[in-house]
């Protein structure tokens, strides 16, 4: 499956240990900046219910869903336990010339 890099935002648009929502081509993503200044991307909706993760809380490498407090490791997409049972899909991210790009397949 081919991927294309899509520009999301300026790197500084995301605070450290935070997340933003990014909508592209009818799909929604969550793009994260970790406490150690790395960037990651996952699908934007919780796998439990139709809730935007970008409204949730980033703690270290965890994103917590704002509705039911389901937790995922946003670096790997791993669901960390009830009420989330299905992993999140993750996407490659790169930072070039001060902008964040994600590879959407």
């Amino acid at each position: 499956m081919s991927s294309n890099w899509v520009e999301v935002c300026a790197a500084d648009d995301i605070d450290e240990e935070d997340v933003i929502r990014f909508d592209h081509d009818g799909r929604t993503f969550a793009v994260y900046r970790s406490p150690d200044d790395e960037y990651f991307a996952t699908d934007g909706l919780c796998t439990h219910e139709h809730i935007h993760l970008a409204d949730g809380l980033v703690m270290d490498d965890i994103i917590e869903c704002p509705k039911h407090n389901g937790r995922f490791n946003y670096k790997t997409g791993q669901a960390k336990g009830a009420p989330v049972c299905v992993n999140l899909r993750t996407y490659p991210v790169k930072v070039e010339a001060g902008s964040v790009f994600i590879a959407i397949s």
Binding site: H48, E49, K67, H68, A82, P83
Partner: peptide
């Protein structure tokens, strides 16, 4: 603890 975690999830949905 299992049953009620899920029932409370539904209560919030």
């Amino acid at each position: 603890p299992v049953t009620w975690r899920w029932s409370h999830t539904r209560h919030h949905t």
